[in-house]
Design a protein around this nucleic acid. Structure first.
Lengths: 209, 209, 209, 209
DNA sequence: AATGAATGAGCGTTCATTCAT
DNA sequence: GATGAATGAACGCTCATTCAT
């Protein structure tokens, strides 16, 4: 990833303009879908000319790809940071889920795209192979997988199928956040409430013991 | 819903052809997204001429709408049947989840569309208002809501926020099924295993007591 | 032309059905134009099936052609009848103009098509050459031309250019009738008033002598 | 109307290109009819790409509408100029008719469309209401109507029905010009001859006094 | 003879991309 | 670097015509 601090003024400005375009594009892709959001929409919304956008991105697909990549990078950073600052699985899940919720509220549109792309739901660039981000995705899943196995071995959690749980966790957290964001039920003022609720169900289940 | 048994031969054949088109369209919509699936794709795939499709549906959007409607109808039938054959919440959730899993394995593509449409993720017909199926959706949610509240009152489950749980349940089960179907991890031979796993986590949580 | 009196019952019924289709088609062609009037429109309006129409006409263009032909035949009959029952040009023009007005009020739609086709205004079948009815058209013009020249020789009218007058007469009478029919100013109850007015201007001009 | 002299170079060039498209379109509409003239025809004929046309006009119908509007504007200018430079009805009709003939020889195709549209003959854009140009049309008719009444009052012409005459005048002059243009009988070298002929008949009639 | 479901060529229109300015 | 007019491939949709019943 480009480190903004090491760049000269020109490169810094260029990066800023690139991010403005990504931000506008993400909102429009999330709102209308990849195909229905036109480059004219993006140009108008980001207050650049259509031609200018092609100075920053090779084509429309590249805009989409770069948004996904950047959110994946962020997620990787979050999970790496959490990995190195927690020990037990429970602590890890608490910290990671909380970070994900907070981060996602801030990156609503980008996350919608990510979820859309990885659940294989909805429209996406025709030529963007599903394995385009395999490596980064595997890294993220790898950390989770390792932690889950560790949690079972250290008897923090029950002896459940780690693979199944991996998907339960991700298909629970990501769609929950996006759906609640869409419904405007979840917002920056009640994140903790939602995080705690989800973790409570996940940890303790719904039954009375 | 049209009852196939009461129709004459001609009407029956017409309905069958309509369903063939819907089936082909659902697969293509799920695969490529609504906008990227062309009518020529649908025509080729369903082995009709392009024009023929317009004898059965007013336009492309109407094909999409009718698929969603039909899967919602099925879901409504499932939940109604389950509602009348179970008493406690736990029994209800067991039966409903199992039915949903079994039904969805059979209707993979249609369910992908449904999830896409209701999570607001991904592309959809521009003009299909989000409230187009509000009534049916409310009926389904209504039954769940009533049952959840009943389960809390009868002390089957802990005193959790019913609204939050409603969305946890739906954002857990539907995306889990669709994701695992996409990954071909879930198939008709191991449904029960997955159903039991999801219900186990939901009921008991992951922690060791 | 087919003489209805000489035909058997079957042929008579066939001719009647053909004319019903022509009548419906003429109305729709006049209303929407040739291209915009669909065969489904014509079928619905004439209360036949689409396929049935092809038992009576080779194709859409043939329906149009047959309507023009039939109105031209009528006009030819009118002009021939008038030709043999009048002597002077003035009498001829009075009788012919009156007949044309009366006939056209009855055949509003067909005449609109005729005028459209012969003024070269508006849409028509692409492949229907402009010379398709040259012969019949020449016959009609021929009678008029002969009479006009006769009128000049016998000093009934001034020595004007017969060719120019021929077109003044036709471009005056036909568009006047059609325009006034469209505006619903002209109808069966005030035909004589309009006929007399047009003839008065044509014969005497507008100036005070 | 846009005044070409006040515009910058870019605007002037844009207007020129717009007019080239209109010119090509008018010819094709007049030749084949609105529906049968395709946008590919218009693009080829005006030597632009199809897409380019949509930078100048919203859609096909808008091209048609703009042509009619522009010819109506010209007619309005002609009649206004004539109105202010003549006093008697006879002088007015002489000047106006001459101007119309001269102008129409130059704008053959556009006038064919105008006549087609206002006689209600032939094909036109389905959605272009008949009253779309009512105001401009009324202005033109209004001037004529006023002048005719004035001519009767000042005893320049006989006491004829002004409304009937209004339509005789227009249904005489416009279709006469268009028909003779189509037949290539009328051209820029013999306009005066035709104008004088039409006016002679209109003023004096055909009878010998 | 009567029908209308099936067909696909052809239309109007959109929009990602290019390139001259 | 910034621009947006120009482009044409590709889309959704229509409808004259055919043909099995």
């Amino acid at each position: 990833m480009e480190d903004i601090n090491k760049l000269g003024r020109k490169e810094r400005e260029r990066l800023q303009r690139k991010q403005e375009i990504q931000k506008s594009a993400a909102r429009l892709f999330a709102e209308k879908g990849f195909t229905n959001a036109t480059l004219e929409d993006i140009a108008t919304s980001s207050e650049f000319g259509i031609g200018t956008i092609y100075n920053y991105f090779q084509n429309k697909e590249e805009i989409f790809r770069s948004i996904i990549e950047s959110i994946l990078d962020s997620n990787l950073e979050i999970i790496s940071a959490t990995e190195s600052t927690t020990t037990g699985l429970v602590d890890f899940l608490k910290a990671y889920t909380r970070s994900v919720f907070y981060y996602f509220v801030d990156k609503r549109d980008e996350v919608l795209l990510l979820v859309s792309y990885f659940t294989g739901i909805g429209e996406k660039p025709v030529h963007l192979g599903q394995d385009c981000f395999r490596e980064k995705n595997c890294q993220i899943e790898g950390v989770l997988r390792k932690r889950i196995k560790g949690g079972i071995e250290s008897r923090e959690i029950r002896n459940i199928n780690p693979e199944y749980f991996l998907y339960i966790y991700h298909t629970l957290v990501f769609p929950y956040v996006t759906t609640q964001l869409k419904r405007k039920v979840l917002n920056s003022s009640n994140i903790d409430e939602h995080v705690n609720f989800v973790l409570d169900i996940l940890f303790n289940g719904i039954l009375i013991k």
